[in-house]
Design a protein around this nucleic acid. Sequence first.
RNA 1: GUGCCCGUAGCUCAGCUGGAUAGAGUGUUUGACUACGAAUCAAAAGGCCGCAGGUUCGAAUCCUGCCGGGCACGCCA
Length: 558
Amino acid sequence: MSSIVEAKKTEVKEAIEKALQAAQEAGQLSFQTLPAFVVEQPREKVFGDFAANVAMLLSKEAKMPPRRIAEIIVAHLPKEGPLFEKVEIAGPGFINFYLGKSWLEEVLPVVLREGDDYGKSDFGQGEKIQIEFVSANPTGLLHMGNARGAALGDTLSNVLQGAGYDVTKEFYINDAGNQIENFGRSLEARYFQLLGHDVPFPGEGYHGQDVIETVQKIIAEVGDKYLTVDEDLRREFLIQKALEEKLTNIKNDLARFGVEYDVWFSEQSLHDSGAIARTIQELQERELVYEKEGALWLKTTAFGDEKDEVLVRSNGIPTYFAADIAYHCNKFERGFSKVINIWGADHHGHVARMKGAMQALGYDPDALHVILMQLVRLFRQGEIVRMSKRSGQYITLSELIDEVGKDAARFFFVMRGADSHLDFDLDLAKAESSENPVYYVQYAHARVCSILKASVDEVPSYEQVDFSLLKEEAELDLIRKIADLPDEIVQAAVSYEPHHLTRYAHELASLFHSFYNSCRVLVDDVELRKARLALIEATRITLRNVLRLLGVSAPERM
RNA sequence: GUGCCCGUAGCUCAGCUGGAUAGAGUGUUUGACUACGAAUCAAAAGGCCGCAGGUUCGAAUCCUGCCGGGCACGCCA
């Protein structure tokens, strides 16, 4: 539960702060406030283990060129401390710190000791975060957009948990409102049609084949006895049965995808409990609601929206927007300090409105964070796979898992940032070759396992290993990357960008493959062999932990 | 028309709150298996970071204006 990299950065930073103070007291440097400088790992290894940009930031206030300031700071740093092997000034005024390799010897024991927990931290301090994703209409099957949302949301949840947050994953079931009425009419029409009655199908209805299948199942169970009952009763029954079946399907598909929710939240329950009515009343009390043409409107223009939005239609039914406001209030009432939503980019117009509504009701709009994800395009043999939801012609999550497998699907969806359009190459995802990044990472894991199996002796416990024997460039690079995991997870968590993790996984695998090709593990030298076994065991642990966060399996054989 | 997102190597994309010579993968070219898995590795080539201004010690990153692509502008969700 500790990050060595973070600890070292802090040590460097404190040393610089002391040097700054000393320089100021000596009258060599004058400034009012300490600038918010950073200590970071430079892009290039030649620039040392850590670098500070403090001199550049101070240049203006201290009225001195950055390199001159850097010289003064360096002069006040501890000369021969255990911390710095070498300190250099480079480029426009960076101070580069070379720590030598002794600090790297601290890394592997931590990994071996923490095992499955390596990479976790208490950064989030148990802060309560709620995350809502997929929330697909229970009137159909899950499509590619839902699949991307599922992979993104679930991975982000894992990452947040890994960074020490208390995460609740939630699926909002749209089981009320207009589209359910519409769904009911579609079900009813199919019910009549399948029982030999020639009735018209509603133009705006749900045309998909899956709806027909759902009704077939219902008929198999109850037969034709709902032909003659009252229309309201019939529709209510069909809706209830169909929603049950659809929801079970959705749950099963998501479970196959490795996604389990903590809460399934029903929209209908907000109607039933009066939560929506209460929310509308509260908005009314704040004089943000007015009546026009028989409908109730919310003054969203007061929060910069282009036009006001309807809360309650002239037919008396609250809109989705009204229900969603009530739902979000409910989230905050449950004590979450942060609420994350993952929406398709086509809902972006909804973001400002929802934040505005939260502000109107006295909540902090910034506590609501919406991740918008761009659309997914499927490619097969270089051609776009055309899909149309209206006609029911689209590839479902279930079919995707059948075709490319859970591992590839999840990895591919998380590989790109949410706001970039995702081109999903089905052939690449299926390819069992090096072009496929999933296999590349998994292969690294399988390779480690294979060596461990071939080894006659067990992985030594970390107390029995002399880690100073690891001094090849490839070994040190690999250790450095392993040491990064806790920070990578925190980075991905605070930025809500899980795609950093697929990148990290690939880099780690790459450094391992390099190491494998330049160093032999099972050498005759007993002590070196032990050290290298410990290194690859730590690599295995790190790879497996990352893959677990991604929801991708870590096979021992491929 | 208005608003939001995107524009980086042939292709698909990274690039963290502004930092050093803009990075991966893939594709192309060339090498490496009598050694723990060649589903691997090493090396080369490949860029006006859409265009033009501005902010400053410093811009792919921030601001403005254009150009090009996507999306949204319902008493749908």
